[in-house]
Design a protein around this nucleic acid. Structure first.
Lengths: 206, 206
DNA sequence: CGGCGGGCCTGACAAATGTCACGGCGGCAA
DNA sequence: TTGCCGCCGTGACATTTGTCAGGCCCGCCG
């Protein structure tokens, strides 16, 4: 038999990380060589242990999974990436693929399929959840303009228009206008709603 | 050797559920006899399979983990409950314990400790994360009054004051007043902020 | 009993938010 | 060139939101 596939696991929840390690270690052709809990530990650990495939969560402290994907693809070209995430946000899939991921799996998928996904990614195939792919195509790219995204992203932290205007070096009226446009385009009714919708669609990352 | 401890797993994310099953099945004295993905499937499955310990996630469709704890404790008294959750929201711990849980573990805890937690809960001991317990005591019970929580919970979905007033059969002024009180007590600056803070502390459940 | 405190309800007022119409600028096609 | 269209920036205006003072009711303690 040939060498087993070497895996790196990145997930901020230690319990989930360990459980995934146990699950994947059941497969004779897979072996977990590294585990990290932060996005910015992925590249150093990948350099050191030279895994064949890295399983990255999207929600991580330090560096989000998309950025970590880009970084590890650049630093360790031989290492393929399978992104595993809690939320099937349409924009996440597109961005993960643009960042060089070989596959994208949501945590709702049956556990039995994970090992197969890993093997396919390792073989150079693309793995995506079909339902999620369809939704991504339906939702499409962000309708928000550059400034609108920026304002919305700043508004995410919560704060009055005056503060936003100050940090962005804009007039209050301008901020209000961008916010209003974003509210209209997202179909929301509040500023808070608009932030929520945009976040759920992954339009606030870039 | 005596009979193994029989486990029921409840988590809405199939991947995590399966991974936990793999992790716990590594222990010779533990066996997973049932898995469910919804809160309202816990009691029927527990009646059927008679587990010794049920591991329940808090965030689940159908019925949240706290309510599921109460239900399973009432329907299957011999089954102890270990609540496993993503967020260490202070209020969750208190409510879980009040509902009859034997233990409370956050998903940040190392994987090696999970099996021990299961064994202790099975033995009738109480298992809680010490750091989280301290925070719970510090945060204390909800400062919100009954109406305030109700209004805040209704406002969670987003919507204008007029709509809230209509669904609650109150005057707009009253709704505004409750909202204002909640904003003050939570230390928030917006209605949205207040909702977020209250949710993070687990004050919006009961 | 009378006073006190707290929760609940309400309306009036000030402040923030969202909408609109407008002008400037740059790309692009006729 | 000219006209058109989209993005950006801005201020005036209406709507919504948050704050405040006050009235009502009930339980509690002196």
């Amino acid at each position: 038999m040939t060498e087993p596939i070497r895996l790196l696991l990145a997930d901020d929840q230690a319990l989930v990380r360990g459980a995934l390690a146990a699950l994947l270690s059941l497969e004779p052709d897979l072996t977990v060589v590294a585990e990290v809990g932060r996005g910015d530990e992925v590249v150093p650990e990948a350099r050191r242990t030279r895994p064949d495939v890295a399983l990255l969560d999207v929600e991580m402290p330090g560096l989000d999974g998309i950025a970590a994907t880009r970084a590890v693809r650049a630093a360790v070209p031989g290492c393929r990436v399978l992104v595993v995430t809690t939320f099937g946000r349409p924009g996440y899939l597109r961005r993960a693929m643009e960042a060089g991921a070989g596959g994208f799996v949501v945590k709702d998928t049956p556990a039995r399929q994970l090992a197969d996904a890993v093997r396919r990614v390792h073989a150079g195939l693309r793995v995506v959840d079909p339902a999620l792919a369809a939704e991504t195509l339906a939702t499409g790219a962000s309708p928000l303009t550059e400034r609108e995204t920026e304002v919305l992203r700043t508004a995410r932290g919560g704060g009055t228009v005056a503060e936003l205007a100050a940090t962005l070096h804009l007039s209050e009226g301008t901020v209000r206008n961008h916010l209003s446009a974003a509210i209209g385009k997202t179909g929301a009714r509040n500023r808070a709603d608009a932030v929520r919708v945009a976040e759920e669609n992954g339009w606030l990352l870039g």
